[in-house]
Design a binder for these strands. Structure first.
Lengths: 211, 211
DNA sequence: CGAACAATGTACTTTTTGGTACATTCGCCG
DNA sequence: CGGCGAATGTACCAAAAAGTACATTGTTCG
């Protein structure tokens, strides 16, 4: 990294700068709302380079989506519920998921944008197929421990738990503006966060323990 | 309604046709992705009329958003949990909310789109302030009955319950494409629906009963 | 009836925007 | 050390898209 000579030309740097800036701009404005010229202006290079490295606006967007999902997967792999008992592990997983979503709002916005496009771009990224597997495995393990210890019900599978937690955490970010407006409440106000953070863990654990 | 003569010119009809078509197009393509020309082409009138009646693309979008929220409020007022006991009433409310969301996917898409725009347009619609109140009142009533009958915990308020249910139901629609792809599952497959429909009621009722 | 005005259609303008032709420069390799 | 190709910049183009000028027609009301 630092043993490289200082270069005026550096393909890798140019490409990754474009990708980083494009991620910001697409997340801010959506696919159609994002302007190729704006992305270029925010970098130290030019629009020409977008076409040189990516081919066009659409391929750039796809590259952004792919990299964003990869980054998130990396972050998810850092989740560790350690030596906790099943109920506490589940609660902790829910809370870490909550934190994680609030910290990666640009990513959540990209996901919303992609859904507006009915997933037509993500479907072309074969590398992301079944990217959810790691999350599922961790949940499976916690659920299995809970079942064998007799503290969790046995008719709930990892997918359902993941769905409930994801829905809650994504909603906090993705719908904050309309929901906040309609109920005159700021979901991210400091005085609300601790409560909203623990809420989803409470719900999930109550549910899993209800036998 | 029917005592009017047949008109070739009908301001109300023209305006409402524009609004209806614009709702479809904005929901399909987003604000930036929607084309004024396409909206016009799909009506029996012309682009000129959009500017005549609404002033421009942005005002048209705002009118669409306002009308969509009003329509949803009307639909929500039809929710009736009748004579059911608190737990069953809550379960039924959750299921009706689930049905309602699946039936109004265009509306959910408009909401997602508006959130991508950080709620900048809905904030200009004062008429929608506190539109969530009716939903909150119904929940309050069910919760209060449950508490007084001793079947519900007493430290949960209507807002929290509404948040959990909304998040789940909105997610089913809003994130169906990316979530479905990542987990190789179709959230709207007929064989999944009954399970996903009852799931949220199970979760909420378990939680509220957990004292 | 027939003016007056609301409602509408046609065709145009202007701006924006994604994309490209072409020239140029840097740096590596023989 | 020089030429060759990867990398880059400038300037431009053509299509698309929002918005408008102006003419026209139907409807209503005195």
């Amino acid at each position: 990294m630092s043993d490289q000579p200082i270069r005026q030309r550096d393909a890798e740097r140019t490409r990754s700068e474009l990708l980083a800036v494009a991620t910001e701009v697409f997340a801010e404005s959506g696919y159609s709302g994002a302007r190729v010229d704006e992305i270029a202006e925010r970098t130290s290079t030019t629009k020409r380079m977008i076409y040189y490295y990516f081919g066009g606006k659409e391929q750039l967007y796809r590259a952004v989506l792919e990299e964003a999902y990869r980054g998130i997967r990396e972050a998810e792999r850092g989740i560790d519920v350690g030596e906790l008992g099943p109920a506490e592990a589940m609660r902790r997983l829910a809370e870490l998921t909550y934190d994680h979503h609030l910290e990666h709002q640009a990513f959540i916005r990209l996901v919303s944008i992609e859904n507006i496009h009915r997933g037509e771009h993500i479907q072309r990224l074969q590398s992301l197929r079944d990217l959810g597997q790691p999350a599922m495995s961790l949940l499976d393990e916690i659920l299995e421990r809970g079942r064998s210890e007799g503290v969790f019900r046995d008719d709930v599978d990892a997918f359902d738990v993941h769905l409930i937690i994801s829905a809650y955490c994504v909603f906090q970010v993705a719908n904050q503006y309309t929901f906040g407006y309609l109920f005159s409440r700021d979901l991210h106000a400091p005085e609300s966060r601790a409560h909203l953070r623990s809420l989803i863990g409470d719900v999930v654990v109550s549910w899993l323990r209800d036998r």
